[in-house]
Design a protein around this nucleic acid. Sequence first.
DNA 1: CTGAGTTGCTAAATTGATTCAGCACTGCAT
DNA 2: ATGCAGTGCTGAATCAATTTAGCAACTCAG
Lengths: 342, 342
Amino acid sequence: MATRKTRPTLADVAARAGMSKTAVSMVLNDRPGSRLSADAADRIRAAAAELGYRPNPAAQSLRLGKTRTIGFVSDRVTVTRYASGMIRGALETARAHGHTVLMAETSGDENLLGEAVQSMIDRRVDGLLVGLMNARLIQLPPVPRDLPVVIVNGRTSENHPSVVPAERAAGGTMARLLSDAGHRHIALIGPIPKVLDDPAESVSIGERFRGIDAAFAEAGVHPIVYEVDGWSPAIGYETTLRAMTAHPEITAILVGNDNMAFGAYQALSELGLRVPADVSVASFDDEELAEYLRPGLTTSRLPYPEMAALSVEMLLEIRERGHESVAMPTVVRASVAPPRAS
Amino acid sequence: MATRKTRPTLADVAARAGMSKTAVSMVLNDRPGSRLSADAADRIRAAAAELGYRPNPAAQSLRLGKTRTIGFVSDRVTVTRYASGMIRGALETARAHGHTVLMAETSGDENLLGEAVQSMIDRRVDGLLVGLMNARLIQLPPVPRDLPVVIVNGRTSENHPSVVPAERAAGGTMARLLSDAGHRHIALIGPIPKVLDDPAESVSIGERFRGIDAAFAEAGVHPIVYEVDGWSPAIGYETTLRAMTAHPEITAILVGNDNMAFGAYQALSELGLRVPADVSVASFDDEELAEYLRPGLTTSRLPYPEMAALSVEMLLEIRERGHESVAMPTVVRASVAPPRAS
DNA sequence: CTGAGTTGCTAAATTGATTCAGCACTGCAT
DNA sequence: ATGCAGTGCTGAATCAATTTAGCAACTCAG
């Protein structure tokens, strides 16, 4: 019943309604210019419904040159849980606007990027989204002039429209969060300048720390800065151990990301220091981890779903294309409190 | 140069090579029956290369009724990082076999499942993958008889081909890992029977615990069982606290999943107990978390990428379709050691 | 009563690829 | 010289939709 021999076509609907294909097409797409009788329109719609007619997108795409499909090419987005929010945002927004999403992943292999992009072009996607795990500067292989491209969480040397997180503002917000709470002896754990200023590594992470520096300067706070080469929990652990040993007066730590903050928690716990009673901790990203930690980690969320959603809307020309940034919301949990009275 | 006014078609290639469209099609697809001169074939290939010809998949699909596209519909797979390995496996295997992947996500909404499946059917995908976050039993909306379907990490009441993790074997392996290390006083933290036996919740998780029970029974170990309602770190934390307080003789804990194990670590740390010197911990899933914990958590990995890869191969008829299970590899880290001499 | 305008509808072309049927030519045996 | 098979190639149909151009039939003004 539900499964017929072959799926019904426009011609089948026309035959059943006793009308021409033209009429059916016009009614089902309700074209403005068509002047068909209400009776005919009803018959056509009824016939279509009875047959369970669904237009063949291949035929439509052939005729119209549109596929109602957007391509999503990412580097390692599916590998990391938190960035997979990007996929979710893209999928959801595309669906809301009647588009489907063709996915490909390059696993960070530059050759595969070319191959994936070519495969999207071959399949005549209406738009191409390139999603990056880190907000890097990349080189995109040439694409047809008529194919819109938006970079999610990154930039290209060819200066395609792009969406990145508003890192500078987020840095300022998190720094003020600590200084406003009354902290004066604050450790800052961030990357070494090499990482900070290498656009192949990240175009936006530098902004994060410039925002922090500016806010601390304005608040008259001189953070004790630790520059580290990496982002892992192990590094957060070691650095926190070093920091608290050398500077027991520290009452708050602003950490470059949640992973390092996780390490910081472990170090503080081993030192017998309580979060936030003895030491407040704040960081960036809002990984799933941040919620699991005890107490919950106050952090600035990387807005992956929102960035992807905005990018899709730019692709579909619902929003104007350009270089946009999306605010990073502060997720307040329990890891920040005023400093212990000293 | 790279971007022409309109993309070259088969007819353009034919004109440039001075041959018919038929000839071009035959050469480029090197059909067995075609008897074209080597010279003609060379000219055609040269013309195609010069023009950068790429066949229009919409036209091919219209003619052939094949799209070389598979649909991947998931419930909440992108939401959780560890299950996103499923996406990776599907993408990679599909690509290896010249297929692209159309994605949709339902966010667990049953209505959206129907809508997503319909949208895949409309787009005439060659096969449909349905990926589930938990290995649940679901009801799939009717699909055309000629559309192959494979369920990744789940089952359907209609008994579609499916791939699930080999939970029973994994349960046995992890139980033996602890008993073989010499542990006799072992806590087992697992779900309450309601969760265990509800196929709408999971069809395979019950096997996990039956495997554990069987292996412990064979080893003559009588675990101290805690049945909990949920899987969160908070539950792992509380249960561990209760267990170690009531039974200080416990030297090992087998935890239902990594999230609860994370909570167990926190509880043990607060109790002043060291992992693995005082208490060994082992669990299931291998989330990113498991690697971050100090010491690294020994756990049985849910083989998402492998399950997805196998499913794609079943879809494309590279492997026979049926009900398959994929082994869960034991990821040995540092959280298991022999019990302290008592 | 005639010509123009409106209404309601349709035939046929178009999109880009694949494929069936068959044409023109050569070489060979009869 | 004639029939036949094999070789190398092509015209036209086909897939399922959209769209242009235009055909009848009717209304209405002059």
